[in-house]
Amino acid sequence: MDILQEISDNLQKGQVSKVGILVKQALEDKIDVKTILGSLIEGMGVVGRRFRDGEIYVPEVLIAARAMYAGLDLIRPLLVQTGATYIGKVVIGTVKGDLHDIGKNLVKMMMEGAGFEVIDLGRDVSPEKFVEAVKANQPDIVGMSALITTTMVNMKDTIEALKRANLRDKVIVMVGGAPVTERFAAEIGADSYAKDADTAVAKAKALISNKR
């Protein structure tokens, strides 16, 4: 089998060490790093779609993501050297007061697996921290996550803080999390809502290409 296909297949099965070995092998075989990255993206894309469609579940996605990072961590320094560009830059975090980050982490994994550069601010991220990160990194997208009804309202505070800092028009704001809805996203002035990680990736790609 084609080694690139093998990388993708093993990523999907969550074979962490196998993916590492195969990516090393591919590098020794002088396969272009961007092509290797493509196989990781392809594999993670399948994982995302299967998760969205209810064929696989949270544990399997977490395992596949570990396998993805086993490969990605090897090629990342080379990608930087070759000047390969990411398809977009995302600043992501769980909003102030909220310490639940599994959902946010799933989105981050899928985004990285799709070729985005992701700056993860972690959890309990205040509006000020989001603003600072936008200033420092100039991302295309700000992604916010919340699990609880008491904290999801803090998404609005972040959007207001971005407006006050004159940064709101410079970024696409995406929101998600169990209690968040399309309607809520519209009410608080977010640009987009995604109900799962795979949809978040698809929407992020579309929004970025529209913006450009």
Binding site: G54, Y57, V58, E60, A178, K195, D196
Partner: peptide, 12 residues
């Protein structure tokens, strides 16, 4: 359970 479906596979 999770919001959109099971959290783990049913077999688990």
């Amino acid at each position: 359970g999770a919001q959109n479906g099971l959290l783990y596979p049913k077999e688990s």
